[in-house]
Amino acid sequence: MLRIAYFGPQGTFTEQAARALAPGEDLTPYETVRLALAAVREGAADAACVPIENSVEGVVPTTLDGLSDGDPLVAVAEKILPIHFSVLTRPGGGEVKTVASHPHALAQVREWIEANLPGARPVASSSTAGAAVGVVDGDFDAAVCAPVAAEHYPLAVLATGVADVRDAQTRFLMVRRPGELPAPTGADRTSIVAAAVNRTGTLAELLAELAVRRINLTRLDARPTRNNFGEYRFFIDFEGHVAEPRIVDAMAALRRRCHLRFLGSHPRADQVAASVEPGAANQDFLDARAWAEAVVKGEGA
Rank of each mutant, 00 (worst) to 15 (best):
P184K: 00
A208F: 11
D188E: 01
A211E: 10
D188K: 02
L210D: 07
E231N: 14
D188N: 04
N216W: 07
E209N: 10
A211T: 04
T185Q: 07
T190W: 06
I192D: 08
N227H: 12
R214K: 14
I215T: 08
P184N: 01
L206V: 06
A194P: 04
D188G: 07
I192Q: 05
S191F: 01
N228P: 01
I192G: 09
E205D: 13
A183T: 08
F229L: 15
T185C: 11
A187V: 01
G230W: 13
L203V: 10
R219M: 15
T200I: 14
I215H: 08
N227I: 10
E205K: 10
D221G: 03
G186I: 01
P184V: 00
R226Y: 14
T185E: 07
G230N: 13
N228F: 14
A195F: 13
I192P: 04
T190N: 05
N227R: 14
S191M: 05
A196I: 09
L203S: 05
A194M: 11
V212P: 06
N228S: 14
Y232G: 00
N228I: 15
L217D: 03
A194V: 15
A204H: 11
T200M: 14
L206Q: 09
N227D: 15
G230D: 11
T190H: 06
A187K: 01
R214I: 01
G186W: 05
L203C: 05
T200L: 15
L207N: 00
R213K: 12
D221K: 09
L207Y: 00
P184D: 00
A222M: 08
A204C: 06
A187W: 09
R214A: 13
A204T: 10
F229Q: 13
A204F: 06
V197H: 13
L206Y: 04
V193W: 04
N227A: 14
R199A: 12
T185D: 07
P224Y: 06
V197T: 10
R226N: 10
R223Y: 09
P224L: 04
G186A: 05
R199W: 11
V212F: 09
P184W: 02
V193M: 07
A211Y: 01
G186H: 07
A183F: 03
A204S: 13
A222I: 02
A196V: 12
T190K: 02
L203T: 04
L217A: 10
R213V: 11
L203I: 06
A208Q: 10
T225D: 15
T225G: 14
T202W: 04
T185N: 08
A222P: 00
Y232K: 02
R199T: 11
A208E: 12
D221N: 14
T200A: 15
G186F: 02
R226G: 03
T185W: 08
A195E: 15
V193C: 06
R213E: 09
A222V: 02
G201M: 07
L210G: 07
R226Q: 13
G230M: 12
Y232S: 07
G186C: 05
L206F: 06
L210I: 09
R189G: 00
